[in-house]
Write a protein that binds this DNA or RNA. Structure first.
Ligand SMILES: [Mg+2]
Length: 283
DNA sequence: AGCCAGGCGTCCT
DNA sequence: AGGACGCATGGC
């Protein structure tokens, strides 16, 4: 990227690379010494230099909001419970932030995510963007935004299967139709309290408790939402229920809501990142 | 060459 | 309420 096309903003307590590779967004790609991607319909280059971000000129405000640079990260991390597993994860993931993503693209991405590895979710995201997204020019690059629900609703199930969605294609299409018609008003749902927002999301095809919690956390800024996937379930059973034979999903849900507290979603993200990147199984 | 993955919907006890 | 099963795909 050419320096004259960039501007600077402060980003204390932030690790861009860790945040973009922590399983909450799936389309950013390394480019030079930074990353390129889109935030809504805005194409963006972003690079971290210490406590500053270099971003595409005109996009500083968008970036500050998307990367949630206003979250009081030190205060959030100090609110985590004091135990060995949590402390190790907190130290390992320093600078990891929960993003503020656009609702629809976050919802769609996580509908595709079920029983898929992060690498493959990235492939599906790219295929969908290149097929139906809006192309945007950034210097010599062409970046594609995530297509609107209206645009996705016009696709066929087979076209989505061609993007390697498998059995998820039908669900994504059905949910796109509900959002496109206005029957599901994702933006209006911002006003709902957590429990009602979760209920509305779970009514959508392909959305259950886990996906709903991801969307609440990564798009609706519900920092208490605690997604329990394969990795987190393993961590919870190994570190917090080491002697139990069977631990039901409901028991885990109740425990996490109480034990990890008001920033539980943040705690969950640090545990997830640590499990994936710091253990033999994750590497 | 299997194993596994940021699960969900359905049906059974 | 809790558990079993089918569903697709490709990186490793
Ligand atoms: Mg649902």
């Amino acid at each position: 990227m050419q320096n004259r096309s960039l501007e600077t903003l402060a980003c204390p307590e932030f690790d861009l690379a860790v945040t973009l590779d922590s399983g909450q967004t799936f389309h950013w790609e390394a480019h030079g010494t930074g990353f390129v991607g889109t935030i809504g319909e805005a194409p963006l280059y972003v690079e971290q230099r210490g406590d500053e971000l270099l971003v595409t000129k005109g996009a500083a405000g968008i970036a500050r909001n998307y990367f949630a640079l206003d979250h009081p990260l030190d205060e959030i991390c100090r609110s985590f419970p004091d135990d060995a597993a949590m402390s190790a994860a907190r130290d390992f993931g320093r600078g990891l932030r929960i993003l503020r993503q656009p609702e629809w693209e976050c919802l769609a991405a996580f509908i595709t995510s079920s029983m898929k590895q992060v690498a493959h979710i990235r492939q599906m995201s790219r295929a969908i963007r290149e097929r139906w997204g809006q192309p945007h020019r950034l210097d010599d690059l062409e970046l594609f935004s995530f297509p609107s629900a209206v645009r996705m609703a016009a696709a066929t199930e087979q076209e989505l299967r061609d993007c390697a969605l498998g059995y998820r294609a039908k669900n994504l299409l059905a949910t796109a139709e509900r959002v496109a018609s206005g029957a599901a008003d994702l933006h209006a749902w911002r006003e709902l309290p957590d429990s009602e927002l979760r209920e509305r999301l779970c009514e959508l095809p392909g959305v259950g408790a886990k996906v709903a919690n991801c969307v609440m956390l990564f798009a609706y800024e519900r920092l208490r939402a605690f997604p329990i996937d394969v990795w987190i379930e393993r961590v919870l059973k190994e570190k917090y229920f080491p002697r139990a034979r069977k631990v039901t999903a409901e028991r885990l849900r109740v425990f996490c809501d109480k034990y990890f507290g008001e920033h539980g979603g943040y705690a969950q993200q640090y545990l997830f990142h640590h499990a994936r990147k710091a253990t033999p199984r994750g590497r």
